[in-house]
Design a binder for these strands. Structure first.
Length: 439
RNA sequence: GGGGGGAUUCCAGAGCGGCCAAAUGGGGCAGACUGUAAAUCUGUUGGUUUAUACCUUCGGAGGUUCGAAUCCUCCUCCCCCCA
């Protein structure tokens, strides 16, 4: 991790498709020797989600290239809300939550970055709340504000869009608080420049304006030279938003997104996106990826790219063991799993296979007495919201219980349906599983 | 402060006294085809349902009417124009 790779940092992220915009001179500065760079991370939750991963991977490659990566938790800026996004005004996080989130995020970053003390270019995690909170309003506008003109600030796209309406919507205006965001972020950069000799800020392409306000501030206040580098926003081939599913964000925290669900997210990547994601989210070399792409093109049904992508990330974020469990679960759930196969699973394996699947508790007595399917699936276990929905599904041949199609709305479910005297597997369509647990 | 326009089922957006549970598009779900992909095609998308039946829905509260998402009154919220 110490050595400089044959490729420079910028060359590396360029072929990976992670470079959108870069300030002239950045490359030269990086070649002079070890440098430090930072990205900002919003501490709005106590876990990262995969939307954060591009920035994290930027840091990772930065460190692999021998430089020092810094993750800045936006405790202060997170309270303000960046007008670049469509985010509304944010709520203030209390200090306790902030610290809790910071710690949780750090634990996840450890999987990507080397924080160990012995490492010369060890990664750092900082929280801008630590320096911003001590800054009084008056001091800030006197010492920082006077160096940047309002003219400069309103020329930024993020601000202009809100003031004049831009292409899409009418101007919605922005509060003074939001307006000041770029200045606060710029000060972060200044602070890091002074305290950590950090000369580069990286981020998504929507951050370009904010970052350059930082370099400008550094130039004016310290006559220093600082740099900016952004990566493109990740898109999906079908135009959808990356990292979101119907069920919400894909988190790194196994409590929020099960390892199985995490694995499934990557496995379900479309062909067009898979190569792109492999470049961005893994550290596989160019030749390795080219080889995979070649094999994939020859036999696309094997979905080599998706499998590799899912493997790399599940192992990295969770563990080898969780990865194997997920593969095993997927095979049973999506392979040619039969009723008998399902019944032959022992309890341990069963639990592993279905660990990420939503479960519903139903009283065992009721099941022994026997319950009508409709009642069971709507009232006892809230898997469906109405009888009509189930009838419709049955009509479409989309409902399975214990991997057997069910078409009879009069069916009585009793203890004979219990697998290991305890479970019933309910499947909607091809991919949506639920488990009913008798207790 | 003055004038005008609007609020419809997940979203966008028709409907403007009965044929409206409400066009159309998007999204969702399911089926076929497949590779747990994409594209395509089909079905479905308030509830109870055997249902051409009933119940609950068209910003809120009242009213007119045999009958209202549709007309009237008041209220709330949003947008535009003028000052």
């Amino acid at each position: 991790m110490q050595k400089f790779f044959s490729m420079s940092f910028t060359e590396e992220i360029k072929w990976r498709g992670m470079l959108h915009d870069i300030m002239p001179g950045t490359d030269e500065m990086l070649k002079e020797g070890r440098a430090a760079a930072y990205v900002g991370i919003d501490p709005t939750a106590d876990s990262l989600h995969i939307g954060h991963l591009v920035s994290v991977m930027l840091l990772k490659h930065f460190q692999l290239a021998g430089h020092q990566p810094i993750a800045v938790i936006g405790g202060a800026t997170g309270m303000i809300g960046d007008p670049s996004g469509k985010s509304q005004e944010r709520n203030l996080l209390d200090i306790q939550t902030l610290r809790h989130n910071q710690e949780a995020i750090k634990k996840q970053l450890v999987k990507f970055l080397d924080f160990s003390e012995q490492t010369e270019n060890k990664a750092l995690i900082l929280n801008n709340y630590d320096w911003m909170s001590k800054f009084s309003f008056l001091d800030f506008i006197r010492d920082v504000g006077k160096h940047i003109s309002v003219n400069y600030m309103i020329a930024k796209d993020s601000v202009k869009k809100r003031m004049s309406g831009g292409a899409e919507k009418d101007a919605e205006g922005l509060s003074f608080t939001e307006f000041s965001y770029q200045l606060v972020q710029a000060y972060d950069f200044l602070h890091l420049y002074k305290e950590y000799n950090c000369k580069l800020q990286m981020g998504g392409s929507d951050q370009w304006g904010n970052i350059t306000t930082g370099t400008e501030l550094i130039r004016r206040m310290l006559q220093g030279k600082a740099f900016a580098l952004t990566s493109p926003l990740i898109t999906k081939a079908d135009g959808g938003k990356f990292g979101k599913t119907e069920k919400g964000n894909i988190w790194l925290d196994p409590e929020k997104t099960s390892p199985y669900g995490f694995y499934q997210f990557w496995i379900n990547t479309s062909d067009e996106d898979a190569e792109k994601y492999l470049k961005i989210f893994t550290v596989l070399s160019k030749s390795e990826i080219e080889l995979l792409v070649k094999s994939h093109t020859e036999a696309p049904h094997n979905r080599l790219l998706q499998k590799k992508l899912a493997e790399e990330l599940t192992v990295l974020v969770h563990s080898k063991e969780e990865f194997f469990n997920s593969v095993a679960a997927s095979e049973i759930l999506f392979g040619k799993g039969t009723k008998n196969q399902l019944r032959s699973l022992n309890e341990k394996t069963f639990n592993d296979v279905f660990s990420g699947v939503p479960t519903f508790l139903v009283s065992k007595e009721a099941l022994i007495r026997g319950i009508n399917v409709l009642t069971l699936l709507t009232s006892e276990a809230l898997i469906f919201s109405s009888n009509g929905e189930i009838r419709r599904l049955m009509k479409d041949n989309g409902l399975s219980i214990n991997l057997e199609k069910v078409n009879d709305s009069e069916l009585i479910i009793n203890e004979e349906f219990l697998i290991n005297k305890k479970y019933i597997v309910v499947k909607q369509g091809k991919k949506n599983y639920s488990i009913i647990v008798a207790s």
